[in-house]
């Protein structure tokens, strides 16, 4: 139980990732690097320093305390500058938590899960990447009677999914692109394992929601949606949920000192979302338009 996990956010009153009022635990590290990724701070499996330049009042405290001054490359991620930063402009992202520590956070809102039929969602990043930690958390939640959901890219050895399945009440399983080449290009990994994992998982698990991000011009093409519907047809999933692209991650890329390739892409219209839903309904599954309108 002293296994530690690296978590980059614990979001309470999470209401878009599974039923009821939930706490979503974001595990750091992801094998994918999707063009449209809206949690770029979840990609690296290590801690990261983020800098909100607009908050800096140039007090100079960070410069004084830095043990490895120089270029950003010399940063040892010790976090001292974030500690002394009075405005919170600097923040060392990523907390190492033990299972009991993470559970203490999760259990805080049990009364709200009880009232709303909610629970905890493990997301990321890719939560299956920290398999041992995730399995321990899922086991601990089961013991506490807390409903669990795992929000996954599906890119993991099937053995990990198989081990998680009996401890997971609901899977939120992403499908993005059906063309392997394009998948590799836009997400950094091939899709073959993701697709086969879904087929195999669905044989043994009753509650899988397939989630499809609708990225204009990328995932919402007729060809992609048709192929996806055909692929999903024989698979016994609960439902398909489509999620509209949004560009709220722009600030995060800036804080990380990275450029956001899709910064100028507009969110799909409600009409486009409905078209995508219709296309995917050819799979024979219920399709819902998820997420909540971006504010």
């Amino acid at each position: 139980m002293d296994k530690k996990g690296l978590i980059f956010n614990i979001m309470r009153y999470s209401i878009s990732d599974g039923p009821g009022i939930r706490t979503t635990v974001f595990l750091k590290g992801c094998p994918l690097s999707c063009l449209w990724c809206h949690n770029p701070e979840g990609q690296s499996p290590r801690k990261e320093l983020i800098i909100r330049r607009d908050r800096c009042i140039q007090c100079g405290a960070c410069l004084v305390c830095c043990p490895a001054p120089g270029s950003p490359d010399s940063c040892r991620l010790c976090g001292k500058c974030a500690e002394v930063c009075c405005t919170g402009a600097r923040e060392l992202l990523g907390r190492e938590l033990t299972v009991p520590e993470a559970m203490a956070e999760i259990e805080k809102d049990i009364i709200f899960y009880d009232e709303s039929g909610g629970g905890v969602t493990f997301s990321g990043g890719e939560p299956l990447l920290q398999a041992e930690f995730l399995l321990a958390l899922l086991g601990a939640c089961r013991e506490q009677g807390i409903h669990t959901a795992v929000d996954t890219t599906g890119f993991a050895p099937f053995s990990v999914l198989e081990a998680a399945a009996p401890l997971t009440d609901a899977f939120l399983y992403d499908l993005k692109l059906m063309d392997n080449g394009q998948h590799l290009e836009d997400t950094g990994v091939p899709n073959s394992g993701i697709l086969s994992n879904l087929s195999r998982l669905a044989r043994g698990h009753q509650n899988i929601t397939v989630r499809v991000p609708i990225i204009p011009g990328i995932t919402d093409t007729d060809g992609n949606l048709e192929a996806m519907a055909a692929f999903l047809k024989p698979i016994p999933i609960q439902q398909v949920e489509i999620l509209p692209y949004h560009n709220t991650a722009l600030a995060k890329y800036q804080h990380l000192g990275r450029t956001y390739p899709l910064a100028d892409l507009a969110s799909p219209s409600q009409e486009k979302m409905k078209e995508a839903a219709t296309a995917l309904a050819a799979s024979g599954h219920k399709v819902i338009i998820g997420g909540v309108p971006n504010e």
Binding site: F8, N9, M11, Y13, I15, S16, D17, F26, H38, N39, E41, G42, I50, L93, S123, D151, R211, E241, L243, P244, H246, T248, A249, A251, K252, H255, G290, G291, V292, P293, N294, E295
Partner: peptide, 14 residues
């Protein structure tokens, strides 16, 4: 103001 920052799957990091 309790609000939705980015819809599903998105951390509220600002």
């Amino acid at each position: 103001e309790h609000r939705i920052v980015g819809g599903a799957k998105t951390t509220p990091l600002q």
